[in-house]
Computed example of a mutant assay.
Amino acid sequence: MGELVGAVGEAVAVAIAAGAATVPVSASMLRAAVATDPTHPRATTIIGELSIHSAEFRRLWARHDVKETVHGRKPFRHPRVGDITLDWDTYPLPGNPGPFLLVYTAEPGTPDAERLQLLASLHATRSRRPAPADDTATRA
C-alpha cells in the first residue's frame, strides 16, 4: 500500500502546488487509496504533511469524498519538453491489496504525442551514452 499512497500523495502535493483544478479529485483518490489501512504510517505521514501545508487539502479531506478513479488526464510541465497533457489508465494486477499498472498515453498526431515522443528520444539518447572508461588499468 505504501507505494500507492506515496504516488497519490505526491500527485496531490504537486496539484496543490500548481493550484490545479485536479486537487479535489486527487484528494478523493488519496482517501480511496488509504481506505484499506488508514493507520498505515506512510499514509498518516503524507496526510499530515499535506494537512499542515494546505488549507485547501484540509478542507477537501474533511469532506470525506472517496473516488476510485481508473482513468483521467494529467498535465505535466517537463523542463526539457515543456507542457504536456497525458491520458492515464490503471490496470489491476494480481495481489491483495490491489497493485496496479499506471499507463500514460497521448492521442496520436497531437502536440502532446510529439512532446511525449521527444521525451522518449531524449531518454533513449541519454541511456545509450557509453559509460565512462575505467582508466585504472592504464595507470599501472
Rank of each mutant, 00 (worst) to 15 (best):
Y104G: 02
A32D: 00
R80N: 04
T69I: 13
P132Y: 06
I16Q: 09
P24T: 03
A20T: 08
R115K: 15
V12M: 10
S28Y: 07
L102A: 07
A33G: 06
V81P: 04
A15F: 05
D112A: 00
A32L: 04
S54P: 08
M29P: 00
A137T: 11
V103Q: 06
K67V: 07
P94T: 06
L93N: 12
L116W: 05
P97M: 12
P75Y: 01
S54D: 03
L118H: 08
I16Y: 04
E3P: 04
L93I: 07
S127V: 08
H71E: 15
A7D: 07
A21K: 09
A7L: 15
E49D: 14
A11I: 00
A133M: 11
L101I: 02
P79Q: 10
P94L: 04
A11N: 03
E56K: 13
V12L: 08
R59P: 02
L86W: 01
P79S: 07
V66H: 05
R139F: 00
L50G: 03
L101D: 01
L60V: 01
L4S: 13
L101F: 00
A120G: 02
A43V: 14
A113W: 09
R77Y: 13
S54A: 12
V8M: 05
E114C: 04
H123N: 11
V81D: 01
A13D: 07
S54W: 13
V66Y: 01
A55L: 14
E114S: 06
A32H: 01
E49R: 15
